[in-house]
Each structure stands twice: as structure tokens, then as C-alpha cells.
Design a protein around this nucleic acid. Structure first.
Lengths: 126, 126
DNA sequence: GCAAGTATGAGAATCATTCCCGATAACCGG
DNA sequence: CCGGTTATCGGGAATGATTCTCATACTTGC
């Protein structure tokens, strides 16, 4: 159906250089003049997440943050704790590791979460 | 000072077979007859977490869950999504992987989050 | 253009977590 | 053991993110 709002939200997300919370995206949309409701932002973000079109993760404070990733394939993130710059990492090594560990303990249908944060070269003014 | 409440909370946490939320722990303490406040549970849980005596992580719903781990050393968890059984995994391989990835992209002071969930052999009634 | 159905937005409702503050209990010097 | 001082408690209010509700606005098929 009407994909007007959905497109606006999807586009706004696309424009983000890093992970953003629903609240942030909502604020940006409002600033950009979009008359959109917070509930709508949440709805679409969730829909996009379920459709696997965006990645979701939780900050240490428990806030959900979203990001439209370059690839639809499974990957992980390397995020700068200072500027938020995000590098998408697709490396089979971790997947294999997770599978091996799970296997060693008899676990099945394994799913994993792997996120790495650090200070990027631009921010680490050493 | 008064370590009465602190001990009760620490002990209750010790008795948990898996990760528990502050709310759950609070409920258990009340059931056990402890006249403790929710705020106190949060306070001590946070203190214990900062002291590195308990591990904290976030559920997909954003709720913080705590666990007193066997070792104080750095490790990860393999959790059964059905029964909650938790296996502590200390495997240098992931650490090396994370360091390597970070290094390749010029990131420093790296910290990582790695959690694996699956169905344990007891629950996977296949 | 019209009916029927979905998306939308505003604000209320939820829920975990934190804040506030008067009450309480531990510690200490005497 | 006593009073004074101070950190901890507990309960309820305050906060903040997320979800729900529902009347209204837009879409689509016809």
C-alpha cells in the first residue's frame, strides 16, 4: 500500500552514516519537514528489521539502533566508539568458530551476536 | 558498611542457574521473604557489574540480565534458548579474530561482544 | 468517484530503570 | 552501651523508550 511514509523512513535511514535509534530518526524526519509520527517510525523500522533489510542491535543503555547495511548477507560490525564510523565485516572465521563451539557442546540451530567496538584511526589521535 | 542486603543479593544471584533480570531477582528475593526494594537490587547489581563480579548482557527485548560467572576471566556464553542453560566459553580464537579484524581496519582499544544462542542437546528433542 | 481496507499520527499505556527523600541501620569515639 | 554521623534502604514518583489504541486520512480495485 501507500509506501510514502515507508519510503521516507527508508530513505532517511539510508542517509545515516551509522547506527541510529528510532528516536533520532524520528527527530531527523521532523526536522526535514516530514509530518510523521513516532509510532510509524517504530512500525517501519521493525518491519524493515524483520524483512532483514536493516540490522538492529542494542546499545549498552538498551536502546535499539538501526542501520541499513550495504549487503543483505550475514556480517558483523566494527564500530568506532567515538565517531560512530562503521565497518561491515564479513568474515567466515567467526561463523566457523561459533559453529564449532556450539557443536562441541551439542547445541543446534545456533545464532550468534558479534559486535566489535574500538577507536578508529581518525579518532585515535595518538 | 551494611553488607546485609548486598550479601543477600549476591547470594541470590549466585544461586541462579542462568542469566536473570533485575526484576526476576527482585521477585525471588521477595518470595524468599527478604524485604528488599527494587532500587536496591538495581543498585547492587550495577555495583557488582562495575566491579566485574557479574556479567551483564541485554536480551533482544532490551532488558538487562545478570549472571555471576565461574571465572573472573574474560569469556563468552553459549546459551540454550529453550532452557536457559549456559556454558561459559573461554576460547582465545575469537579474541584473536576480533583483534585481527580491528587491526586490519586501524581500530584501537578494542572491546567486543560475542554471544551464542542455540538449542542444547537436552532440549533439542530431535 | 466509491467502498473497503490499510497506514498514519496523537496521545495514552507499558515496562524497565533511575531518581528522590525520609527512614533506618551500621560504625565510631567516648 | 550511647549519641552523632553517614551510608544504605525502601517505596513511590519520575524518566525514557517502546507499544497500543483508535479515530482519521490515504490507496487501491472497480
Amino acid at each position: 500500500m501507500s509506501t510514502h511514509r515507508r519510503q521516507a523512513i527508508s530513505a532517511a535511514l539510508q542517509a545515516q552514516p551509522t547506527f541510529v535509534s528510532a528516536q533520532q530518526l524520528y527527530a531527523e524526519l521532523r526536522n526535514a519537514g516530514e509530518r510523521v509520527g513516532l509510532a510509524t517510525v517504530y512500525r517501519h523500522l521493525q518491519a524493515l528489521a524483520e524483512a532483514g533489510q536493516v540490522d538492529v542491535l542494542r546499545t549498552d543503555e538498551g536502546e535499539a539502533v538501526y542501520r541499513r547495511c550495504a549487503t543483505g548477507r550475514h556480517h558483523h560490525h566494527l564500530v568506532c566508539r567515538s565517531c560512530g564510523r562503521t565497518v561491515e565485516v564479513a568474515d567466515r572465521a567467526v561463523e566457523r568458530w561459533a559453529d564449532r563451539i556450539a557443536d562441541e557442546h551439542g547445541f543446534r540451530d545456533v545464532r550468534h551476536t558479534v559486535e566489535v567496538v574500538g577507536t578508529c584511526s581518525a579518532c585515535g589521535a595518538s
